Amino acid sequence: MPERITSRENGKIKYACKLAQSAAFRLEEKAFFAEGLKLCLELAKSCPIKVIYYTEKALAKSPELKRFDCEQYLVQDHVAEKLAGTQSNQGVFAVFGQPVSSFLDLPHNGRFLALERVQDPGNVGALIRSAAAFGFDGVILSPGCADPFGPKVLRASMGAAGRMPVVTCPNLADALAQLRAWGSTCLAAALYNSRPLNEVDGA
């Protein structure tokens, strides 16, 4: 039987909340927090699940939650409300190990989406999801972009950040120069003086 948590001040709850709130803590712990049944099940396909929390109602609706080989906690509704980052919650939350991706491990001559200082979490998540849907080989972020493993980005990406490499580079210009050296054609989106993509050589 999973251990019951009845207090919002429980250390396991505080740890999960800190992961949800702090990008620096996520980086330090090499872990991230997610909520929602569909998102957690999707992430579990590609990321190691370390801890799962669920309410009695959520477990009754989705008994498969018990199959995960990790720490499991049955939380009361008022505890779930503290974990939740949305006004209404599904009563399912989890802590995952963060996938380790390095720029130098990216495939040469692959297709990548590079984002420069895109700060809105919803936009970053949607772009990562789109890159995965179009079969890109990874996403490269500059400093100043929203954390790809923040709760809002994860929801918007629908777990895509767990399925494909997402790397943050200290200097995006240097990263693009390396991609060109590997044989990639680099294209930039622009509002003015731009050309349709199908007219560009190498697109």
Results as ranks from 00 to 15, higher is better:
residue 43 L to E: 03
residue 45 K to T: 13
residue 46 S to A: 13
residue 52 I to E: 03
residue 53 Y to W: 02
residue 56 E to H: 09
residue 56 E to I: 03
residue 60 A to K: 14
residue 61 K to A: 14
residue 63 P to G: 04
residue 64 E to C: 05
residue 65 L to Q: 05
residue 66 K to N: 09
residue 68 F to P: 02
residue 69 D to T: 12
residue 71 E to P: 00
residue 75 V to Y: 02
residue 76 Q to D: 11
residue 76 Q to G: 12
residue 81 E to L: 06
residue 84 A to F: 05
residue 84 A to E: 02
residue 86 T to R: 12
residue 91 G to D: 01
residue 94 A to K: 00
residue 95 V to Y: 05
residue 98 Q to P: 07
residue 105 D to Q: 13
residue 105 D to H: 12
residue 111 R to S: 15
residue 111 R to Q: 14
residue 111 R to H: 15
residue 112 F to E: 05
residue 117 R to F: 10
residue 120 D to S: 14
residue 123 N to S: 14
residue 123 N to Y: 08
residue 124 V to S: 05
residue 127 L to N: 03
residue 128 I to P: 00
residue 128 I to A: 08
residue 129 R to H: 10
residue 129 R to Y: 06
residue 132 A to R: 06
residue 132 A to W: 07
residue 132 A to D: 07
residue 133 A to N: 15
residue 133 A to K: 12
residue 134 F to T: 12
residue 135 G to D: 12
residue 135 G to E: 11
residue 136 F to S: 06
residue 136 F to H: 11
residue 140 I to T: 08
residue 144 G to H: 13
residue 145 C to G: 09
residue 145 C to L: 11
residue 146 A to M: 11
residue 148 P to S: 09
residue 149 F to S: 06
residue 149 F to I: 07
residue 151 P to R: 01
residue 151 P to S: 06
residue 151 P to L: 00
residue 152 K to A: 14
residue 153 V to H: 03
residue 153 V to L: 10
residue 156 A to N: 07
residue 158 M to H: 07
residue 158 M to E: 06
residue 159 G to T: 02
residue 159 G to Y: 00
residue 166 V to E: 00
residue 166 V to C: 04
residue 172 L to F: 11
residue 174 D to K: 14
residue 174 D to Q: 14
